[in-house]
Amino acid sequence: MVTGLSLTAEDRRHAFEVEALPHLDSIHRVALRLTRDATDAEDLTQDTMLKAFRSFHLYRPGSNIRAWLFTILRHTFFTQYRRRQRRPDVDDAEMVDDFSLYRAVQEVDPEGRFFEQIVDDTVLRAIDDLPDEFRETLVLSDVEGLRYDEIAEITAAPVGTVKSRLFRARKALQRRLYDYAVEMGYIKRKVE
C-alpha cells in the first residue's frame, strides 16, 4: 500500500489508478441515474474523478474508496448539476408504500416469472421516475450493493431514514413495473 506525504506525482497517479479507477463503471452508473441524462452523466463522471484525484491525499488508504467516491459524486451532482437540469424532481406525495407485490401476483405468478419479460430500459426508466432522494438510495443499495450504514454516510441521512426511503422506493418501483407488465399483457391484473 502506498502511503505517506512524499509521493511523487507518478506514485500518486499509480495509487489512484489502482484504487479508484476500477470503480469507474459504478460511478458512471450512479451518475446516469442521478442526472437521468447521458451527457450530464459523462460530465459528472469526469468531474467526480478529477475532484477525487485532486483530493486523493485526503483519502485514507484501505478505507472505503467506493463510499468516498460516491460522496464526491453526490455532492458534485447536488451543488453543480441538479439546479440547472430541466427535469424537475418528482413530488414525494406520489410515493406509495401500501403496494404488496406478493398480494398482487400470488394467484397468477407467485414466483414473479413475468420479471423475465421486462427489459433493462424499462427498469431504468422506472427508476428514473422516482424522486431524487428515493432514487439515489435505491441505486446505491439495489444496483451498487452498499450497506445501510454506507448509504447513510453518503447521503447524510440517519440509517432509519435510509431504510424507510429504500422501502418506499422498492414499493414504488414494484408498482410501476407491475402496472407495466399488466399493460403489456405479461401478467393478468388481480381482480379485487
Partner: peptide, 27 residues
C-alpha cells in the same frame, strides 16, 4: 422468495452496461 427474486432482477437489469470506451479515455 418473490422479493429476493425482485431484488436480483433489478440488479441484473441495471448492471448490464459498462462505461463507454470514449468516456473512459476522456477520464
Amino acid at each position: 422468495a418473490l422479493e429476493r427474486g425482485f431484488l436480483r432482477f433489478v440488479q441484473a437489469r441495471t448492471r448490464l452496461r459498462g462505461v463507454p470506451d470514449p468516456l473512459r479515455r476522456r477520464v
